[in-house]
Amino acid sequence: MPLKSKQPRIAPLEPPFDAETAEALDRLGPPIALFRVWARRPELARGVADWGRYYFSRQSALTVRQRELVIDRTTALCGADYEWGLHIATFARKAGFDAAQVRSLGVGSPVDSCWDAGDRAVLQAVDELHATHDLSDGTWAALEDAVGQDGVLDLLLVCGWYHAISFTVRALRLPLEPGTARPDSP
């Protein structure tokens, strides 16, 4: 569901940045609007950056593809157009998504023909977590077969984290970043 307000509720910081803010932004990554809002509280930004470094590192039990399936589907289900657009623009190619898969992530279903069994297990788990806040035994078993036990744990945490991110970007009313699109865009 698109956001009605066009103006962010908390304005992202604009340069020039003081030293503490600049350090926080350096840790977070590119100075996108969300990071410039978090940088209003540098201690918060540092904590987010440290968490993000783990989940975007090689230490995660999920592959880049699996991680992006979780993030893209979660943000689409939550109506977080800002975050969905960023991830599709930045990671869709790295994750190996084709146009049909990108469309399915945004407005489709885990049973769409573009998904193999492993991708389908990840997407079914994300959809079920979103709808019920739990996983059935069958979904758990299929997911564990697809990503392993450590991957299941990482998926649960990443999915929960991106629910929090989705709540944040929606409530802040952040507009799309340049060069990004909404999940329902062709």
Results as ranks from 00 to 15, higher is better:
T74I: 12
G148P: 00
L153H: 11
D116W: 09
R53C: 00
F91E: 14
P16M: 04
R73Q: 12
S113V: 12
R27K: 02
D134C: 09
A22M: 07
R53M: 07
P16Q: 01
L129Y: 05
D184T: 12
E23C: 03
P42F: 00
P30G: 06
Y162G: 09
Y55A: 07
D116Q: 11
V102D: 07
E144N: 13
M1T: 11
A39P: 00
H87F: 11
F91P: 08
L44T: 08
F35A: 09
A22T: 10
F97Y: 14
R173W: 02
L105P: 07
D26G: 05
D154E: 09
R46K: 03
A45N: 01
V70Q: 10
R27M: 08
E68H: 09
F91C: 10
T139R: 12
Y55K: 06
T74S: 14
H133M: 13
L135P: 13
A92V: 03
D112V: 06
K4M: 12
P12G: 01
P178E: 11
F167W: 06
L157C: 08
Q124L: 14
R46A: 01
L44K: 03
F35Q: 10
D127P: 05
D154A: 10
W115F: 13
L69C: 11
L77P: 02
P12H: 05
A39D: 04
E144A: 15
W140D: 12
G29K: 01
T63Q: 07
A33W: 01
V126L: 01
P186F: 01
P175K: 07
T90A: 15
D98E: 08
S60E: 07
V37S: 01
L174P: 03
Q7N: 13
L176V: 08
